[in-house]
């Protein structure tokens, strides 16, 4: 017969290792903004209201609740295995019904879910309802790069493609698979609306530090928004499988002050003048 105590010790050991790790996972470690942290355990440092809301919802509400439930179930399993194994309890009871208990374990989960749904739905509305934006950028997914357009009425009127920088061209400090040729620049502390669509298959625009993820679907315009609270370079990737180079179409957003943004706009207008035409020619030759 199998040694029950050995089951117990091993189970407890596994739990002792796994669960503190689970708990830590909720708390973001200090890290450089905007890029994934090596060996990171939790959410990235958030720099937008929606991102901070997500972080709060996960770290303060969801994470503690699910960790508690996991520990509670594990604790019950361990207790039951210890207290009611055939050596400790040779004669089984015939207990098969306990209506109050059944009502309790139906009602308490309902209450927990209601408790979760309040902050969750509040955050959802914040994500979906785009506030009045001072900058609207248009992002189009392509196999396998992103195109950006800055509208004319906000000082733009140009567009450019954002392509992965090949590994052979990386400068020291640039990130493999994340660094691109043309960064998209936006001002900080202003609402940026992002309009997203696609030119071929479905892609998805996502930047973890913003708490933003939105599908790029051909024939359909989607929108999301962010308001970045500090300067920095923020990296994102494509979040929907789009063919062989799905892993090779990163997103880079550089957030700067309004003054620097205006300077960049002026430069970019010259640099990317006629780029719209260039993109078209390039795509026609495909």
């Amino acid at each position: 017969m199998f040694n029950v105590n050995r089951v117990m010790t091993r189970g407890a050991l596994a739990a002792a290792v796994a669960l503190p790790v689970t708990l830590c996972a909720g708390f973001a470690l200090a890290q450089e903004n905007g890029q994934p942290v090596p060996g990171g355990l939790g959410l990235p440092n958030m720099v937008t209201p929606v991102g901070l809301g997500t972080q709060q919802l996960y770290n303060m509400v969801l994470m503690p609740i699910i960790s508690f439930i996991a520990l509670f179930v594990l604790g019950l399993l361990i207790y039951v295995a210890y207290r009611f194994n055939e050596h400790a309890n040779p004669i089984p009871s015939k207990l098969t019904h306990n209506t109050p208990l059944e009502i309790i374990w139906t009602l308490i989960p309902v209450l927990i879910l209601l408790f979760i749904s309040v902050p969750s739905l509040r955050l959802l509305a914040e994500q979906v309802e785009v506030p009045e934006a001072s900058v609207t950028i248009k992002v189009t997914g392509n196999q396998w790069y992103w195109s950006y357009k800055y509208p004319e009425d906000q000082g733009g009127g140009f567009g450019f493609d954002q392509m992965l920088k090949p590994e052979s061209e990386l400068q020291p400090g640039e990130l493999r698979l994340l660094t691109v040729d043309n960064e998209a620049v936006v001002p900080i502390n202003e609402v940026i609306a992002v309009h997203i669509t696609s030119n071929d298959v479905i892609h998805a625009f996502g930047v973890p530090s913003f708490g933003v993820r939105m599908d790029a679907i051909p024939g359909r315009l989607n929108q999301t928004w962010f308001k970045i609270d500090r300067e920095g370079v923020y990296y994102g990737q494509c979040y929907f499988i789009c063919g062989k180079d799905h892993a090779y179409m990163p997103i880079v957003i550089r957030a700067v002050t309004r003054e620097k943004y205006n300077e960049w706009l002026a430069q970019a207008k010259q640099k990317f003048a006629g780029a719209d035409q260039r993109v078209r020619v390039a795509s026609e030759s495909r």
Binding site: L177, L178, G236, I241, A247
Partner: peptide, 13 residues
């Protein structure tokens, strides 16, 4: 940390 699924290669972090 934000790693997307269905990626053959991923950032070093």
């Amino acid at each position: 940390g934000g790693m997307p699924r269905r990626y053959i290669d991923y950032p070093d972090a």
